[in-house]
Design a protein around this nucleic acid. Structure first.
Lengths: 228, 228
DNA sequence: CGCTCCGTTGAAACGGTTCAACCCACGTGG
DNA sequence: CCACGTGGGTTGAACCGTTTCAACGGAGCG
């Protein structure tokens, strides 16, 4: 399958006329990364942005003491690093391959030139950034307004929705990473999960989680009920 | 001064040919709000976005228990509510007039039509959203990775930079609001500020703050040093 | 004068982190 | 095949920063 065909099915470029996919494919470059390899660091100049063909990318920040907060884990078809392209202020976070990954890189100059010509591409881009802004709003809300049990409950329900899985979730990231994604540490996550099990809200077996009491989790997610 | 002239000097529309300012002025509607009046609520349908002519707008979320986290306080020339225009998913937060304010409202449909025609407007918009995304990144980082003294120190230094004020800052919002902006509560803010005074980092007199030890604040902002 | 609103201060409670120990699955090399 | 080390996950106890609750002070105002 050619690159243009891949581009046609990702959110950022869907709905564009196919000759645009050709043009986009022409300016894209393929890059491969090993697990653990850094793609860019906070403050690096934003020379372009990336789309994931395969693999998984972790975007995060690190505190002076070394604690890491994962902002997002991106999978195939998603894009990242667009922000720096438009602000010209360098990347605001780190990006690292969380698994062997293959990416498409779109150089800043060439891409901006394309946007300048085609406003429907610009509109798609605006939609993607807006959606990300909404996600960030939710994350900020969670971090500042809710405690960890609520964030975990919400995340579990989210995973369940996303995978259309019938109450059965298999974590595709380590619990340590999940902790960082929720803005906490493995120990705390572990304790809260065992409390949830003890109360019959979930069942846990390694990285497999079964939701037993959906309503109970919802109550906790909205902080209508507390986890004793 | 006509609306078109006002539009010419705000970031979102600067650099556009003046006939575009005319067009934009034509689709804009003026709206006035009393202090405390709500502009939109979380979840409201995003029928358009706003630009501030005068006054001040507070954008925030509220937890189930009523605690509020201020996301941003916007002043004249700034825009807000754009996100909902492009996601079509409703506003992600509340907006309320923090003072008697006059706003320009741009209806969704008409504005999107303009963007579709003029890609340089789209590029400006992309830049604005990208910058906001960067701000959110910083806020998330602060909330999850730093403690309150660091956030306060960073904010004071930021205010000082912004106003080009030589170490003298006059808070234009209440300390309660500042607390919410920093993701904490008035009591905690008060305690930390008095600790900072006691250590000779700042001097405080009502809403006037003088920075006495810039380097000391920087050390605390980066958590290289702690506030005893 | 007395009211309210905002800011401040103190004591107690809480949620989360830190530090340390431990378990277990897994892979490696003797 | 087993001993060993390693890394992820779990558990306990002490600790720490922040919040909560309550009380109080001062500024502004009818």
């Amino acid at each position: 399958m050619g690159i243009a065909d891949q581009l046609a099915v990702i959110p950022l470029f869907e709905g564009l006329p196919s000759e645009h996919h050709q043009t986009l494919a022409r300016i894209a470059m393929t890059r491969s990364y090993q697990k653990g390899q850094m793609i860019f660091a906070e403050g690096d100049e934003g020379t372009g942005f990336y789309i994931i063909q395969s693999g998984r990318i972790k975007v995060f920040k690190i505190s002076p003491e070394g604690k890491e907060q994962i902002f997002h884990i991106f999978g195939p078809g998603e894009s990242f690093g667009e922000v720096a392209v438009f602000t010209g202020q360098g990347f605001p976070a780190f990006a690292e391959a969380d698994a062997q990954s293959s990416l498409l890189f779109f150089p800043r100059q060439a891409f901006v030139a394309l946007i300048r010509k085609d406003s429907s591409l610009a509109l798609n881009m605006l939609a993607v950034l807006s959606r990300r802004l909404q996600k960030f709003s939710a994350l900020i809300e969670d971090l500042s307004l809710k405690e960890v049990p609520a964030r975990l409950a919400a995340h579990l329900l989210y995973l369940c929705e996303k995978d259309l899985a019938d109450n059965k979730i298999s974590l595709d990231i380590s619990k340590g990473q999940l902790a960082s994604l929720l803005g906490t540490i493995p120990e705390t996550l572990s304790r809260i999960m065992s409390r949830m099990s003890r109360q019959g809200l979930i069942r846990m077996k390694g990285s497999h989680i079964t939701i037993l009491d959906r309503q109970g989790l919802k109550d906790i997610a909205t902080e209508g009920k507390k986890l004793t």
